[in-house]
Nucleic acid binder design. Structure first.
Lengths: 337, 337
DNA sequence: ATGAAAGCGCTAACAA
DNA sequence: TTGTTAGCGCTTTCAT
């Protein structure tokens, strides 16, 4: 690999001058500039970003840590992030914790060692003390999707409570009174908030909660599939008329379970979901859902990052909390009774 | 951030000793070791991998460049890669070119600047000369999915030709004679090989090629959707009885088109695909496909990498070509006529 | 077994 | 406008 020194020698200038023409941050005579540019091209020189990072304390890398790399929701967020940071020269390191606290901590450590400029974290733990440690060490953590109790840091989230409240209210308005819920992993804020929205909607409409209709799918498709199947089998004599899935993956799991049990949506059971499934165009019936605008979440997180770097230069600072709106999309999976 | 120097001072040893206990590659007295370990814990010291990388010429980062980050096929490959390299301390930088040659080159440059140890490249160009330049600069490129003419480098691919040949032969065996193809971007090897398999299957069974049944979907779902729709409209009076989609995305596009035109699979038109669609469990009918084993491709690419680092230490070297087998999964989307 | 010191490739303060 | 040089945090050779 050719270094700045070799360029300097061949162009007959100092390394400082070469550095100056590369970065264009200090005046260089036109003559020297030309010569250097030529030599760089000739030698095929490319600056070593490792060396640069070491010197400047800036890596132009951002780590993104999510619980499930295969969920399109997080993929879309990643694309949103990429779309704003990539033009600015940042690269994204994309990591999955598989909902595993230990792995999450390990990844955070690795990213810390790599001195990434930012970490976008969709945490699946509530370990605020460990995360605080990272922040105190100077790590720039931006929370996405999930909030963490007692942790004061920048965050981009959705309004889980209100969106769910509205969705369940709609279901109730359609005449449903026996409504079940497929919860996400209740250790994280989104699952709790969504379930709270669910509960409050029932309560405000004077509908009793039937606990045997509530299962925990841990945000996992297979788990949701199994739990829903079990729950329905147990309640065969008095089935719920509607089900709420707390995310897209679990909605898919539920649909598979219903299909296997020959329960038709929405004729036998209605189903609504927080977040859309894959290829909604091809799956019958079209699901009534909360649309999450995941790309926007990513974009906002990206913009937050770039704002942070500007602010850092101005020695300002403050904590932002951005809430992304989500809307209900009414399709065909809820029966009016 | 605490540095090795601070640890050394506090532990009353030299930085060399601290480095030695961290890396465990040189003898250190038990007493010193203990003291250092303690101090590291006390100070919460973590080695700076940037500095380490600069010194050792090794970043423990691998770049993965694919044409479409949202296609599950590439995501699965990425997961395969991750599963083998992550335990070894490597991180994956995952980038999408959106099938854009210019962007591909830009990304390759960025990864080169970052001095990633390896690049896994699913190229959407055939620019062997440009890629050669990278390789000559010392970049470790491993091709995945797509081969590139005149480029001698390690590669992990599928047997596109034979798999397609078998799949189309099966369709023909079911009695079909008017068979259409939805091709991928013909600039890349996979698209060409798959189409060749398609053509040879027809030829060997004495079936004429009906050119008006062949469209180019450029491996893009929307494009495939549009082209299929157009093609069917044009051939309304003499529809093909079967269609072959060269990848999963385009199969989805075709299904949407067929659905909109009220053509039932397989009653009106049969459909087969190279690679499986999303949530096959929920889409009717279940598609007959070539199953790609994408996670395995990733794993093999990962293993190839680790073998390379071992070989590099032994100063051996050679080029590997790994071909991943794929199998036909017969489901319900081909009518027997 | 340990420490001093050079140096990885770069940037920037300082001097000229 | 330019060159010299220190130093970013680490590893490793060489000397002890």
């Amino acid at each position: 690999m050719v270094t700045i020194k070799q360029v300097a020698e061949k162009a007959d200038v100092s390394t400082a001058t070469v550095s100056r023409v590369i970065n264009g941050n200090y005046p260089v005579s036109e003559k020297a500039r030309k010569k250097v540019v030529e030599t760089i091209k000739e030698l095929g020189y490319r600056p070593n970003s490792i060396a640069r990072s070491l010197k400047c304390n800036k890596t132009y890398m951002v780590g993104m840590v999510v619980p499930d790399i295969s969920n399109n929701y997080f993929m879309d967020i990643a694309r949103g992030v990429e779309s704003v940071i990539s033009p600015l020269g940042y690269s994204l390191i994309f990591c999955s914790t598989d909902e595993n606290t230990e792995k999450e901590l390990k990844l955070l450590n690795a990213l810390n060692d790599k001195r990434v400029d930012f970490v976008l974290l969709a945490s699946s733990t509530q370990q605020s003390d460990k995360l605080k440690k990272f922040i105190n060490q100077g790590m720039n953590i931006i929370l996405i999707d999930t909030s963490i109790k007692d942790l004061e840091t920048d965050i981009v989230v959705e309004d889980n409570f209100n969106a769910t409240y509205k969705l369940i209210s709609y279901v109730i308005d359609q005449g449903h009174r026996r409504i079940g819920a497929i919860n996400g992993f209740m250790g994280v804020s989104t699952a709790k908030e969504r379930y709270n929205g669910f509960l409050h909607a029932l309560e405000d409409h004077d509908i009793p909660l039937e606990e045997s209709y509530v299962v925990n799918g841990y945000y996992d498709r297979k788990k949701a599939y199994e739990e829903v199947k079990l729950m329905l089998q147990k309640n065969m004599s008095n089935l719920p008329t509607a089900l709420f899935a707390a995310n897209n993956d679990m909605a898919e799991g539920a649909m598979i379970a219903l299909k296997e049990m020959n329960l038709k949506i929405p004729d036998d059971i209605s189903l609504v979901s927080f977040g859309d499934i894959n290829i909604p165009e091809l799956v019958e019936p079209r699901l009534t859902i909360i649309s999450q605008n995941s790309v926007l979440i990513g974009k906002k997180a990206g913009e937050l990052m770039v704002r942070k770097v500007v602010e850092a230069e101005c020695r300002e600072n403050g904590i932002s909390k951005i809430s992304i709106p989500s809307e209900i999309i009414i399709r065909d999976s809820v029966k009016s009774i």
